[in-house]
Each structure stands twice: as C-alpha cells, then as structure tokens.
C-alpha cells in the first residue's frame, strides 16, 4: 500500500483542546477531510495525551497516557495510522513512540500501568502518528489540491507559523530532515506548500518555529505577551495579512495575547489569525461558518469577505 492509500482512512485523535478552545480547528479539519474524500475514524474513548503539564510532573506518566491512545487505535480499532492535528498531541505521541522504542524503563512503566489499567500494552511500531499537514500533503498533495481549488486564496499574504512542538526536539521525528519531499525541522514548509497550492502568497517569515510562550500563557502571561507580540509584528513587517496556524495552543495563544498586548501594552497589531485548515476549507469552496471562522476569538469574517472568501 502506498502512503497515499494508507492515510486515506486514519484514526483521528482530536485531543482536549480541539473539543474546547480549538473547536474551530476540529470543525475545519473534519470539513476539509470530508471535502477531500478522506476518512476520519475518531479514536474510541480517548484520553488526554498528557500535554506538557503531565510531562512536567513525570515524563513517563505522559508516555503512558499517549501510549494508551495508540493502544486503543491499534488494538481495539485495528488502525495503523493515528492523525493528530494538535501539535501537542502529535508531539507527545511521537515522543512516546520514541521512548518506547529506545528506553527500556519507559517500556516497563507503560507495561505496568497498562496492565493495571486493564488494557493491552502499546508496543512501539504498532501505529504511525502523523500530523494533519502530513495527512493532506501525502494523500492529496499540492497538485491534487490545486486541481480541487474552487476559490483561490490569491491575494492573501500569509505568514506560516508552525510553533515549537511540530519540529522540536528533532530526535522524536525520525522521518523529518530526510531530503527532498520530507519535512524540515529548521525550515518547515508543508503548510507553505499546501497554502501555495491553494493560491496564497506566502511571505518570507523568519519566525516559523519561534515560541509563542504557550507553556506559560496563564502562569507567566507577561512573557507570553512579549513573545506573541514579536511574532505578530514580525509577520506584519514581512508583509502578511494572515498568520496561518496548525496548533490550537499557538493559535489561541496568538489570539489571546494579541488582545492582551493591546490592553496591557497599548500595542495593537492588525493581523488575522486563521487555522490552515480554515484557509484550505474556504479554498475548497466551503463557507466561513463551515470551517468555524466564527468560533475564532478574533474576527476575520469581514476581511475574508473582502477577499472574496467564505
């Protein structure tokens, strides 16, 4: 089976954020999948991946939580690919996979906890975890996407923002940095490629993998505001009208601290923040509401209408 066929039906792991603040990412991912004829089967009775918070309490506990999600997909649903659109979930499943392949202590802890919890222990290699970007890029590709575009994104200047968890640390992403066709951890381009295929003009954005301070968005808000402000201003200076995101923590961080920067520092940066799936969905002819633009905190509807989208 080629990658193309393998990814056409995947186990879908939305994760907690996509049921809350990142609901528009959930909605738009599903809508894009449907429009492209791709099959998403939600992981049954899934649990939190452990996020950064449980990892901070104990990294092996996070490995267990992520392994349970993969165990359900592999052992209870007989799936071999898990697609996670959230960078945090994607990162954690990848990290668990790496640890279970390379660290015998992690294997022992996961085995013990799985047995006590009463489910099959996940074994490394049972599933492959991919991001929503891999999913669309590898099944449909740029050419396929371009052929399906009904409403070109031409005239939209986009800064593609990938954040931290999609590329770092590199050892948990063995498939990246493998030359042409693969994703780069220093200059990721999958989102750029897809949006360009949909007609958008990507600006040269130096902060693609900068940190938005998402880890401390509430516990140390001042630093998050500074980091976000830097990202917003740089994108604006690079000529972008829109920052495209692919992570719910980054996305809501940018939206929240865009407001906070204005309220606490008096710095207003007028730039729109949209999930790449929202942009792709509209390029595929979907209405703004179908991809949840109204569910975002910042208001982009008028802007999109003026550009002939949504």
């Amino acid at each position: 089976m080629t990658t193309k066929d393998k990814y056409k039906k995947v186990a879908y792991y939305p994760g907690c954020a996509l049921e809350g603040s990142g609901h528009s990412y959930n909605r738009s991912t599903k809508a894009v999948g449907k429009a492209l004829g791709l099959d998403l089967v939600e992981v049954k009775n899934w649990n939190c991946c452990g996020a950064m918070e449980v990892k901070n309490v104990d990294p092996k506990l996070q490995t267990y939580l992520s392994s349970r999600v993969m165990s359900v997909a592999a052992n209870e649903m007989d799936m071999d690919v898990v697609m996670a659109p959230c960078n945090g979930c994607y990162h954690n499943l990848k990290k668990a996979e790496y640890d279970l392949k390379n660290d015998s202590e992690s294997v022992a802890v996961v085995d013990r906890l799985s047995k006590k919890a009463g489910h099959k222990t996940y074994e490394s290699g049972q599933v492959e975890t991919i991001h929503a970007l891999d999913w669309i890029k590898d099944t449909i590709g740029e050419e396929g996407l371009a052929a399906r575009v009904k409403n070109s994104l031409s005239g939209l200047k986009i800064a593609n923002y990938y954040g931290c968890m999609y590329t770092r640390p590199r050892h948990i992403f063995p498939e990246k940095d493998k030359g042409p066709g693969s994703e780069s951890t220093s200059k990721p381009h999958f989102m750029d490629d897809l949006l360009a295929a949909a007609g958008a003009e990507n600006v040269d954005f130096p902060l693609k993998t900068a940190c938005c301070g998402g880890a401390h968005t509430l516990s140390d808000s001042d630093i998050s505001t500074k980091l976000v402000l830097n990202i917003l201003k740089t994108a604006k200076l690079a000529g972008a009208d829109v920052i495209a995101t692919e992570c719910p923590t980054c996305h809501s961080g940018l939206e929240m601290h865009q407001i906070r920067a204005e309220k606490t520092l008096g710095e207003k940066v007028d730039i729109k923040i949209l999930y790449f799936t929202q942009l792709l969905g509209m390029a595929l002819g979907l209405k703004a509401k179908k991809v949840g633009v109204h569910e975002n905190i910042s208001d982009s509807i008028k802007f999109l209408k003026a550009k002939g989208l949504g």
């Binding site: 899934w46 649990n47 918070e53 449980v54 309490v57 880890a215």
Partner: peptide, 22 residues
C-alpha cells in the same frame, strides 16, 4: 511557581476524568 500550580491542577484533572476541560 505558578507553572507548578498549573501542572498540578492539570494533572489532577487528567487523573480524575482522563480529559481536560479548559
């Protein structure tokens, strides 16, 4: 630190319900 408090509140919720409601 506020960060440790956040981690603890978060982890308590995951242990209790398996999921996070933000």
């Amino acid at each position: 630190s506020p960060s440790t408090h956040f981690d603890e509140v978060f982890t308590e919720q995951v242990l209790k319900t398996g999921k996070i409601e933000e």
